[in-house]
Design a protein around this nucleic acid. Structure first.
Lengths: 302, 302
DNA sequence: TATCTGCCATTCATATATGAATGATCAGGG
DNA sequence: CCCTGATCATTCATATATGAATGGCAGATA
């Protein structure tokens, strides 16, 4: 039976897993390479199994180490959340807050809102994490998340911000000189932009009842931001949030107009620290304005 | 900005929170009281806020410390999960496994099953944790959980074991010399056993359409085990799993027979360690047998 | 009041962990 | 071929963290 493993050994373990070598891990944690080596040796002794194979250019993890990796990450998430939670006074608007959002949200929607928050509360440090699952909040990898679907975990603090439409859009420069798109069939022969791997949106992508599949796309990317940029650059026709479609031409509005919900999520353990509540309320308000109309970047009233 | 807080300081923090004094926390972690005191002082300095008020009979946590507590618990859960995951060889049936179940399940259903597992795999160490939420598995406070409802978190490995009936039961000794219970109205004037605080079952407790509320109970307990024991002791009439009703008399079977589902849950990060898979499969099989019939305690075929 | 038993803070000698320096090894590039 | 730039392992002096012992304090108990 294994008892009393020092938690900082786990930290060193994770650093070595991520950095790939004792030296690199040591640099990251600001401890020396010999010490890092001793930590790993101590941990291996405590766990009774070997975790790495020493090679001339680093340590390569054994299967056992790989199996422990997700647990070590969970530990790091929890430690990070604890550090963030403690990073300000209990009621002061100071300290770090980590916000998770999709790429498009982080790049197109949040910046002016975040700016408003930073102006209002100069003591806040905002971390923007790009990711796409409510898991992040559950796992404490983020404090607050902006999501485009109702939460599947009902242990979270959740607020429905509102709904907005997705639409098929294209840049005028792309459409110039190409056949007009007036009926669903006209999409054939056009360049479509879509997702690479199957995704939550995969099922939404139906035009006039017909599902558009992976093979129909001429440009595939799992990054929603890359897709949006491609549409704007005139690469073809793709899906885009209606509130973000300035300068683009909407196509087939009658055939493709799925409604998407925006939600804001927070881990309940953060409620006792008031700055998380304030930021949550601020974000909810500002995002609702963004959805409601074009002037959405203005600071909320509250 | 707070950086680089040694994770073992968090461990000392949690120990002091739980133990209530430096000395007690030190005993628990097998470190001396002065060292514990230094850890707390170091942590307070690192976080820039005071966490405890020193009193003659212990340390009392500040609000800031209370707010950090759930995060520290999450950290401890993750560390425990990591330690358990590492507590055996990668493919060997050795090491610790923590199973969460309700009191009745842990006391009435699991013991013979667990015994079968221990006989079959002598190297296993089983920890039985009594609790009632799928959260436990999500939070890694347990590796595998037996639950009486479909999981609400869809990030978990889940297996539906089967359904069984709840029924109203009483001990013959209680019924002797009392008015017979043949129609729903006959329950009036009888002693009912039920839950104290509102609960998932609260809504299920309807007899012939009429909801039985908290005030109708003559004996209230939030412990399902205590309820079962009370029924068996002849205290009155209560709800009990049909498969556990041996020796009891069923009442109003036509009016009260809700179906309950049994589920088995596991954290996906454990799949790469085969002993968790094996135990999961063993439990699923054995529990299905328990539900299916009276001979359910026999070892599964697999 | 006197006594006992928890608790925390301080001291100081000691055990422990750490880092700088060094050497050995391997891979890639001129 | 012989550098250069990575890596890890070892050594040893030093810094750091630790524990035993002690004292003081407050609240029980008699």
């Amino acid at each position: 039976m294994i008892r009393d493993v020092d938690w900082s050994l786990y930290r060193s373990f994770l650093a070595v897993m991520e950095a790939g070598s004792l030296s690199a891990a040591g640099r990251r944690l600001r401890i020396s390479q010999p010490t890092m080596g001793r930590h790993i040796r101590t941990l291996e002794a405590a766990l009774g199994q070997s975790l790495f194979l020493r090679t001339p250019d680093g340590l390569s993890p054994t299967d056992a180490a790989l199996a422990l990796m997700p647990h070590a990450e969970a530990l790091a998430d929890a430690a990070g959340a604890l550090t963030r939670a403690a990073s300000g006074g209990r009621d002061a608007m100071e300290g770090s807050i980590r916000i998770a959002a999709s790429e498009v949200t982080a790049a197109e929607i949040l910046p002016p809102i975040v700016r408003g928050m930073m102006d209002r509360w100069p003591g806040l440090v905002i971390e923007l994490a790009v990711s796409n699952s409510d898991e992040d909040v559950m796992r404490r990898a983020a404090d607050i998340a902006v999501r485009m679907a109702a939460p599947r975990q009902d242990a979270l603090v959740a607020a429905r911000i509102g709904g907005f439409e997705l639409g098929l859009y294209s840049h005028p420069a792309y459409l110039r000189g190409r056949p007009a798109v007036e009926r669903a069939e006209d999409l054939r022969g056009h360049r479509l932009i879509g997702f690479d791997r199957p995704f939550a949106y995969t099922d939404i992508f139906r035009v006039a009842g017909k599902r558009i599949a992976r093979d129909d796309f001429a440009l595939r990317s799992d990054s929603d931001m890359a897709q949006l940029a491609a549409i704007r650059a005139g690469c073809g026709i793709g899906v885009c949030h209606a509130p973000l479609s300035g300068g683009l031409v909407r196509l087939l509005p009658a055939d493709f107009a799925p409604e998407v919900e925006m939600w804001l999520l927070m881990h309940p353990d953060l409620r006792s620290l008031s700055r998380f509540d304030h930021v949550f309320a601020y974000l909810a308000d500002a995002l609702a304005r963004h959805i409601a109309g074009p002037g959405g970047a203005a600071a909320p009233a509250s």
